[in-house]
Design a protein around this nucleic acid. Structure first.
Lengths: 210, 210
DNA sequence: GGTTACATGTAACTAGTTACATGATTAG
DNA sequence: CTAATCATGTAACTAGTTACATGTAACC
C-alpha cells in the first residue's frame, strides 16, 4: 500500500518525503491520514536500497514567496549545504531535503502493483484508481472489471435471496447488513460509471474527427 | 477490534474459539474474513489472563444430528475427556473444546469499548452497531450522534464549496473524490435512519398503549 | 481408509502506528 | 527571540496475518 502510494506519486514528479506525505493525505482524503512519517521514511530507504527510487539533486527552490529578497539567505544555505557530511539534494530549506525520483525498476514495480490480482482491499483499490492513468487503456478497464467481479461476489454472499436470512435476529444486525448491501451496490454503480466513462474516452480516441 | 468482537459475542452466549470465529465472519459479512485463528486464540488467552473471560464447563452438546443414535459415542468421549490432562469444558467432539463465558469485568470492558470516543475507524463502528443493543438507549443514540459528527466533518473537508478544488487535475482523481463524497453521504443517510429508528422505538416504550 | 470439518495452538512475519530525537528556516 | 512549520529519522509498540503443528471425529 505504502509502496504503491510512493511510486505512484513519484511517477509524475520528483518529491521529498515530507511533501510526499502531504500529497498522500490530500489524495486519500484528509479524513484518516493513512501515512505517517514513521512508516514513510523507512519505506523510502527500503525502496532506495531495492533500487526502485533514487535520491536526485534538488531542483532549484520550488517555493514562490520572497525569492528575490531572500537570495542572500539562499546562497548562505547553499554554502552550508556543502559542509562536511553534505548529502546530495539539498540546497536550502530546513534540514537537508532529500528529493527522490522513480527508477526504471520502480516504474516496473508500479505497473506490477497496479495490476496484481492479489490484495483486493478497498484502500489499495482507491490508490490504484488514483494512479490508473499510468496504465494502458486495456489494463485499466481490466482492473475495473476485476474489482466489479469481486464486489458482485461479495454482494451475492451478503444478499441470499431470502430477505431475513440466517441469524439476523436483532434489529441492529439487520440494519447493519442492509447498509453493507447498500454500500456495495453504491460502489458497483460508481464502478459502472467509471467503466462506461473509460469506453467513451476510448471511442473518442478511435474516431477523433468523425 | 478483536476484543470488541469476542466480548460482544460472549455477552449473549458462551462459545468456544472455533464457533466464535465463524460468527465474527458471518457478522462482518463473509467477504473479507477479519479474524484468523492466529489472532483469535492468543486473544482469548490474553483476555482470560486479564480476567475478562473465563473458561466454563462445556454445556451438553449443542449439536442436532444423530444425538440419540450417538449417545454411546458421546459417553465414550465423555469418558476419554476425564483422562489425565483433561481440561474443563470438553465432553465430546474433535479435540478438547474450550468454552468461554464473559466475566463481570469483561462486561464492563465491553461497555467501555462500545462507548470510548477514541478509535473512530469504520470497522470498529460496524462492530459497535452490531453490539449496541447491550447499551442503554441514551448511550446508543450518543454513539450514533458522535459518528454522525465525525462523518459530517470528513464530508466538509472533502467537499470545499468550489466544485473542482485543489489539485484534482486528472479525471480519475476527480471521480475518486466524487465517490468518497457519495459514500460518506450514503453513510450519513443510513445513520440518520438509524437514529430516527432509535427515537421511534424509545417513543413506543414511553407510550405503550396510547 | 482417506478426505473433510472440527478444534486449539505457536512462530515468524507484515504493515503499519505513536512517541521521541534532532535540527534548520520562517514569520511574527 | 520564540513559536510554527519544514524536514528526516529511530525505537518501541500494536494489531493483525500466514504457515505450520497437532489431533479428533464424522462422512462416504
Amino acid at each position: 500500500m505504502i509502496d504503491l502510494a510512493i511510486l505512484g506519486l513519484l511517477k509524475e514528479q520528483e518529491l521529498h518525503g515530507y511533501e510526499l506525505r502531504k500529497r498522500v493525505t490530500a489524495l486519500l482524503g484528509p479524513g484518516r491520514v493513512g501515512l505517517s512519517f514513521g512508516s514513510l521514511y523507512p519505506a523510502l530507504n527500503r525502496l532506495e536500497r531495492a533500487g526502485l527510487v533514487k535520491a536526485v539533486e534538488a531542483q532549484d527552490r520550488p517555493r514562490l514567496a520572497d525569492w528575490s529578497s531572500g537570495s542572500l539567505t539562499g546562497e548562505l544555505a547553499a554554502f552550508r549545504s556543502r559542509l562536511p557530511g553534505a548529502r546530495p539534494g539539498r540546497t536550502r530549506q530546513g534540514r537537508s531535503r532529500k528529493v527522490y525520483g522513480l527508477t526504471e525498476a520502480g516504474a516496473g514495480r508500479l505497473a506490477e502493483l497496479l495490476t496484481d490480482p492479489g490484495a483486493g482491499d478497498d484502500r489499495t483499490f482507491a490508490l490504484r484508481v488514483a494512479f490508473c492513468r499510468f496504465l494502458p487503456d486495456a489494463e485499466r478497464v481490466e482492473l475495473f472489471e476485476r474489482r466489479r467481479a469481486e464486489l458482485t461476489a461479495r454482494l451475492e454472499e451478503l444478499a441470499p435471496s431470502a430477505p431475513s436470512g440466517a441469524g439476523l435476529s436483532h434489529r441492529h444486525l439487520r440494519l447493519l447488513r442492509e447498509h453493507d448491501i447498500e454500500t456495495i451496490t453504491c460502489d458497483l454503480a460508481w464502478l459502472d460509471r467509471l467503466i462506461a466513462d473509460e469506453r467513451e474516452h476510448a471511442d473518442l480516441q478511435e474516431e477523433p474527427s468523425l
